[in-house]
Write a protein that binds this DNA or RNA. Structure first.
Lengths: 123, 123
DNA sequence: ATTATTGTATTAAAGAGCTAATACAGTAAT
DNA sequence: ATTACTGTATTAGCTCTTTAATACAATAAT
């Protein structure tokens, strides 16, 4: 699982998104201990400070909790995790709708284009 | 029509997007003359250099043509414009699909969530 | 001819934000 | 007690974007 970091956007931001994704998709399970800052930094091929910043910010979401000397742990509140996943999905749909509206594309067209593109994708 | 510039992303990039939108949605018509760099810069509340950069880059798309001393004009190739609009839309759908896949959301759910959100939006 | 308007080029400076290097502090394990 | 591992703090440097201030060149308008 490569980290696929893009130089056009802040790395720490992408790290937040990636770790959050790993949590809401169950890649990291509720209650599980995360690898240390330095380990994760190595995995992502990133400076430890950058990973530190990402994890610190991610903590404000409540998805992870920090224990000063033993490490960071995924929350064991499964409901919170599913809620986060739902919010991420909602943001994506809203972004899609907004962008398409900017192009003056109708709701029907939004749905048709989605359906059509999904079909092609599964070939 | 405020320009709604966001400080988180390069301004010149947002200017490109905005002018492109105004073209593909017919806000600026095929063959029409655009306001001058300085005028547009004033409208967008932006430095003329920044607007200049945006327009210069936008020209590579073929959507606008420059006449050194009389100004910039929207292409009169209506097909090109519609094609650009289609490409922008396609990019949006693909982004939506990709992001949803990252959240391990199925194609069916992608469509259901879109439909549901569209309904709510029209209330 | 002169004036105004067009796009373009250049250089500098400032500012913001991100990343890197290093040192510190606390605790668990031995 | 010592070692190893955890997160944290601080500072400095780098890069990119944006703005600014001009100057230039070509043409349309008067």
């Amino acid at each position: 699982m490569p980290w696929n970091l893009d130089s056009k956007r802040p790395i720490y931001e992408q790290l937040i998104e990636r770790v959050m994704q790993d949590i809401v998709t169950g890649n990291y399970k509720p209650g599980e201990k995360l690898p240390s800052v330095r380990e994760l930094a190595t995995l992502a091929a990133v400076n430890p400070n950058t990973m530190q910043r990402a994890l610190a910010e991610l903590e404000t979401s409540g998805l992870i909790n920090t224990q000063r000397t033993s490490g960071r742990f995924v929350t064991d509140d499964a409901g919170l995790i599913q809620q986060a996943r739902q919010n991420l999905a909602l943001t994506q749909v809203r972004t899609y709708i907004y962008q398409m509206q900017q192009l003056q594309i109708t709701p029907d067209e939004m749905q048709q284009l989605l359906a059509k593109t999904l079909e092609e994708g599964t070939l």
